[in-house]
């Protein structure tokens, strides 16, 4: 069943159109990769799905489980199960990671009409998940992402993904700034979350990440549109021949 349907989406940022009618359908259980050169609109797409301010949707629609996503505020989207793993996770000084995790999780649960986690249950859950991701406990006591290495920041994103159990995960350039070991750890975390109920959209420049997170479908974006879609072999093809061949197609 279609989880996410992006139909003929047109988006402007300050008078300049970035997406010129983008269409994309992601079904439950699938992992889609979106590849493309700088400026093709990949990050814009992820931001618009999550509801970041500053983008003007001038046409088309985004449906999430058939509901109009663009009508919802970003926190409502989060509670509905839309999760964006940021390319550059922000630092929040003075707010302990543990506090942040619990505040966010309980806010989502409250919005869904579920009961808030009790402290012992929450701690148990966090310990379990963080252990599987190799996140030391003292990292959870530090301010959110404050002084974290690139790898730690990305692992913290995966940790949140595992805790919040979203139905749609968008991973924006997860591989940027990671060495090969850090990349493998983060990718393992993501793979562990693959499930028949959950879909993922993996945005990346490079095929490298897709060696670790193997997609079901690969899309190539250029100049604000999806110009080609195919299986995982498309990524290999791109790696060999580059994006130039698609520039004209757009």
């Amino acid at each position: 069943m279609a989880l996410l349907e992006v139909k003929d989406l047109k988006v402007r940022v300050e008078e300049r159109e970035i997406l010129h009618g983008l269409t994309l359908t992601v079904n439950e259980g699938q992992v889609h990769a979106i590849m493309g050169p700088n400026g093709s609109g990949k990050s814009t797409l992820s931001h618009v799905i999550a509801g970041k301010p500053g983008y003007e949707v001038t046409g088309g629609q985004i449906l999430f489980r058939g509901e109009d996503l663009l009508e919802m505020s970003p926190d409502v989207r989060a509670a509905k199960g839309v999760f964006l793993a940021f390319q550059y996770p922000v630092e929040i000084p003075g707010v302990a990671t543990m506090t942040f995790l619990r505040t966010a999780l309980n806010a989502q649960r409250k919005a869904r009409g579920e009961s808030e986690y009790s402290t012992p249950d929450f701690l148990k859950k966090v310990r379990e998940v963080s252990k599987s991701l190799g996140i030391p406990q003292d990292m959870l006591k530090r301010g959110v992402n404050v002084g974290f290495s690139g790898g730690e920041k990305k692992r913290n994103e995966v940790l949140q993904m595992a805790l919040f159990e979203p139905s749609l995960c968008i991973l924006d350039e997860m591989d940027s700034g990671l060495d090969i070991d850090a990349l493998r750890i983060a990718a393992d975390g993501v793979n562990a979350l693959r499930s028949p109920e959950r879909a993922m959209v993996v945005i990346t420049h490079y095929q490298r990440l897709l060696n670790y997170i193997v997609p079901d479908v690969v899309h190539v974006m250029s100049k604000g549109r999806v110009v080609k879609s195919g299986g995982k072999e498309l990524a290999l093809e791109l790696e060999a021949s580059g994006y130039a061949q698609f520039e004209d197609a757009a």
Partner: peptide
């Protein structure tokens, strides 16, 4: 936005 994306108002 980071906080709001995580479900906070």
């Amino acid at each position: 936005f980071y906080c709001i994306q995580r479900g906070l108002s």
